[in-house]
């Protein structure tokens, strides 16, 4: 009951297990590699988590609504090109920072139009957009990297307030805003009701089309915001930008306890899912596993956790029957 009450922000068995898994992974890697347990490496893991924390937040909302977006990687790529070009053209860095979320929101609007108005399943619609955007990135970059960009956005990561970089505050604010939207406004109830059953939500008088549009736009804006940090962090955009991001985001969010079928999500779980994924990827690299294997690990985790959920659901159903109910 308690757990239900704060449905989207709670520490249940799932979150505790993830936390334990993170700690365990850190211990194992520290023993296995002398390069692992350094403050420099901790910084690397956290820096590498920034984009995924934001994209995962959007993906969590989409999954909770019964949607999905497999094009987040290329959406971030397009937004990053926008940010990079603006930066390169000497636009004021403060304005440049907003180019990312704006581009992302616009692309979210496009996705919603295709999926909601076109009545295409989200996975198919975003898969189609993924193909289109991948080519668009190729055309926009002209087969070359966008590199050596000015340092205008580096303050987002370099400047600290009370010991934390600006990025940390922005991410915390994004999570807080999503929590408020989910638990304190009608939007959150509507989103979770649609995730439970779109037809029932419609019968209950919920403006389903509006809510679905809003969610795709919010997720797009978060992905675009991730692009701003991406450019601040790497100061280049390569052709294959974001190619594993969709897999990473879906895996992290599902790992965090958000239902792939919709209707249920966890904010703490999303954060811990992202951290666990990045800790594993970084640690495996440092103990000498080639980065080629990273998607294998991520994909394996995703499949593993989904099969586990199906299994434990069956088990509890069986117990239910045995108990004679």
């Amino acid at each position: 009951m308690r757990q239900f009450r704060d449905g989207v922000f709670s520490m249940t068995g799932r979150e505790w297990s993830l936390l334990a898994a993170c700690v365990l992974a850190i211990i194992v890697f520290s023993v296995a590699s002398p390069y692992y347990a350094t403050s420099g490496n901790a910084g690397t893991v956290l820096r590498n988590s920034i984009e995924l924390l934001l994209i995962g937040l959007g993906m969590m909302l989409l999954l909770a609504m019964g949607g999905i977006d497999v094009s987040v990687g290329v959406v971030m790529g397009l937004a990053a090109i926008g940010v990079g070009r603006a930066l390169g053209a000497g636009v004021d860095p403060v304005l440049t920072a907003f180019v990312g979320p704006l581009t992302g929101a616009l692309l979210g609007l496009v996705a919603a139009t295709v999926i909601v108005l076109g009545r295409v399943p989200a996975i198919v619609g975003t898969l189609g957009l993924l193909g289109v955007y991948r080519t668009a990135i190729f055309v926009l970059l002209g087969g070359q990297w966008l590199s050596g960009l000015p340092t205008g956005l580096t303050v987002l990561l370099g400047t600290t307030i009370l010991g934390l970089p600006i990025a940390a505050y922005v991410i915390a604010l994004a999570y807080l805003a999503v929590w408020v939207a989910l638990r304190r406004t009608p939007f959150g109830l509507h989103l979770l009701a649609i995730g439970n059953s779109e037809e029932k939500a419609r019968l209950s008088g919920i403006p389903v089309v509006k809510v679905r549009f809003a969610t795709f736009i919010i997720s797009g804006a978060l992905t675009g915001l991730a692009a701003t940090f991406y450019v601040a962090n790497y100061r280049n955009v390569e052709m294959t930008v974001g190619s594993t991001l969709a897999l990473d985001a879906i895996a992290a969010v599902v790992l965090g306890g958000t239902s792939i079928l919709g209707g249920k999500c966890s904010l703490v779980g999303t954060v811990l899912g992202v951290l666990l994924l990045r800790i594993l990827q970084n640690g495996l690299l440092l103990v000498g596993v080639p980065s080629l294997w990273q998607p294998v690990v991520t994909g394996g985790l995703l499949i593993g956790v989904l099969s586990f959920e199906v299994l434990s659901n069956r088990l509890s159903l069986l117990q239910f029957r045995w108990a004679g109910k």
């Binding site: 304190r184 009701a193 439970n196 209950s204 008088g205």
Partner: peptide
């Protein structure tokens, strides 16, 4: 029954017609 199993009783009773107060244009439940 067009109820949302994942929401609470009171959320279901008011679903689609929630009581809210507006703070800076944001509708709060």
């Amino acid at each position: 029954l067009a109820l949302s199993e994942n929401l609470s009783i009171s959320e279901n009773v008011f679903l689609g017609r929630e009581l809210k107060r507006s703070v800076l244009g944001v509708p709060f439940l």
